[in-house]
């Protein structure tokens, strides 16, 4: 018999060690492999979550190490849920979420459908279209502040060119009516390519044979679109909405760079407000309760949505 490296190593292993290794069951070996992951998960996800929930019932402030921490029951939750300012930030977040998803799905799907039409140079167009999402959100936020600048920004000039309005007569990020739309426009510009790519993957996964069969049945292009393209691409579209929905619910960097949450509180989204409570006002207990409420909201909505997504996939 030829002696291999493995057999040489086996021979060299002392009988005591060999016995111990042979003594491990498959289940034990599985645990050995899984344990580090579980430990990490507990340490960096579960433990902080439990700790946050615990803090949410206290008046703890991280910047007051010398102050006694008191258990205050549900007072933080009560204050948050009855605070009109927080409801305003919820409204701002809902506005941002709804309109960004609406425009990104509409434009993203349209672009994907156009790119899928296999024309000359469509690879080049795909590359050009996806460029915005490759940029850092902070950079995007920063340079859009220049684009929106009423005196030098190109945005006002373009709008003025098409509408005849005075260039400096409006300020996208300084006006309470326009600022919520200013952040929607930038997020849509940046993330529509992402939705487009997912939709494109969905469209390309539809076998040509289905369209050929529809052609044989003399189905019109319109009918093919509504009965083949849309239903088969729908799970992908829903997945894109899920990703973008979660991302935009916790939107922070882009909006902070762009408007700082202003003017007033017009574009203060919940994540910006939460950050202020936790790391500017240092109301740790209060911010923990706020975080728990947001977590439950996102988790609940995402669970409902994922169930719907699975139903669509099963169809």
């Amino acid at each position: 018999m030829v002696e291999t490296t493995v057999s040489r190593a086996a021979k060299a292993t002392s009988p005591r060690v060999a016995k111990r290794i042979r003594g491990l069951s498959d289940r034990a070996i599985a645990w050995i492999f899984v344990a580090p992951t579980i430990f990490l998960l507990l340490a960096i996800n579960i433990f902080p979550l439990i700790w946050t929930i615990r803090l949410s019932f206290t008046n703890y402030r991280v910047n007051r190490p010398n102050k006694d921490v008191e258990f205050i029951g549900l007072r933080n939750y009560e204050r948050i849920l009855t605070d009109t300012d927080i409801w305003m930030t919820m409204q701002a977040t809902a506005h941002f979420l709804f309109w960004t998803l609406f425009f990104q799905v509409l434009i993203g799907f349209t672009l994907a459908w156009l790119i899928n039409q296999k024309f000359r140079g469509n690879d080049l167009w795909t590359t050009i279209i996806v460029l915005p999402m490759m940029l850092s959100p902070a950079v995007v936020g920063n340079f859009w502040t220049f684009l929106y600048q009423p005196q030098i920004g190109i945005f006002n000039y373009v709008v003025a060119f098409f509408t005849g309005a005075d260039v400096t007569s409006f300020s996208m990020i300084g006006d309470i009516n326009l600022a919520p739309w200013a952040i929607v426009i930038v997020d849509t510009w940046m993330w529509t390519p992402f939705v487009m790519l997912i939709c494109l993957a969905g469209l390309r996964s539809i076998p040509d044979s289905i369209y050929e069969a529809a052609e044989c049945d003399r189905a019109s292009k319109w009918r093919q679109f509504w009965t083949i393209t849309v239903p088969m691409a729908l799970p992908f579209l829903m997945l894109a909405v899920l990703f973008r929905g979660i991302e935009n619910f916790k939107m922070f960097d882009l909006v902070v760079q762009l408007t700082g949450g202003g003017p007033g509180n017009t574009t203060t989204l919940t994540s910006i407000d939460l950050k202020r409570e936790a790391f500017e006002r240092w109301r740790t207990g209060y911010a923990s309760a706020y975080a728990v409420i947001l977590f439950v909201t996102v988790f609940g909505l995402a669970s409902i949505y994922v169930k719907a997504l699975n139903k669509v996939k099963e169809r």
Binding site: G262, P263, N265, R281
Partner: peptide, 23 residues
Amino acid sequence: EPAYADLLLAMQDRVHNYVVAGN
């Protein structure tokens, strides 16, 4: 005061909301 950040941010919010946002 030790709570200056609370006091400052409240003022930032209230004043900006009136002066700039016009609310």
